[in-house]
Amino acid sequence: MNSRVVISNIVRWVLLFFVQVFLLRNIGFYNLSAPFIYVLFVLALPFGIPNLLLYILAFGTGIVMDAFYDTLGVHATACAVLAFVRISFISVTVNRDGFDEPEPSLSGMGFKWFVLYSLLCIFFHHLVVFFLEAFRLNEIGYTLVRCLLSCIFTLFLVLLAQFIFYKRKSR
C-alpha cells in the first residue's frame, strides 16, 4: 500500500516534470500567460504526509524547476508558499482524523472542493513566482495580469489532467 503511493507519486513527478520542462516551457501567450502544471505534484501529495516532508518535497521540486528555468530560488520560494497554503486549506476544510480519500483528487473530493483548493494554491504560487521574477512594484499591473492569466491557464491544465487520469478510478 505504502510503496504503491510512493511509486505512483514518483511516476507523477517524472511525468509532470517532462511535460513542464520540455513542453510547457516553450508555450506562452504573448508573454502574458505561462502555465506551471508541475504544482499538481504538490497538490496531489497524500493527505497524511508530515509537514516537514511536504515542505522538503515542494522546495526540492521548486529547486529542480529553477534549475531548468535559470531562476534559482524563485520557484523554490513559491513552492514553500504553495505548501503552506495547501496545509492551511486542508486543515480548515478536511477532518483531520478520518481521511476518506488517500489524496486530494477531483473524483474523490468533489468538483467544487477541488477547484477551490487548486485555485487558491495556484494563485498564491503564481503570485510569488511573478513578483519575484519582476522584483519591482512599478509594473504591478502587468505583473498581476500575467499572474491571473497564468492562473487560469494552469488551473485549466490541472483540471484537464484530473479528468483524464482520475475519472475512471472512482467508478
Binding site: 515542494a58 522546495f59 530560488g73 523554490a76 520560494t77 514553500a80 505548501a83
Partner: peptide, 23 residues
C-alpha cells in the same frame, strides 16, 4: 509548525533568489 516551516523555507528561497540571480 506549518507556519515556521514556511518562514524557514521562504527565507531560504529568497536568499537563493537574491544571491544567485544577477538581476
Amino acid at each position: 509548525n506549518a507556519f515556521f516551516f514556511l518562514i524557514i523555507f521562504f527565507v531560504a528561497g529568497i536568499i537563493l533568489t537574491v544571491r544567485n540571480n544577477a538581476y
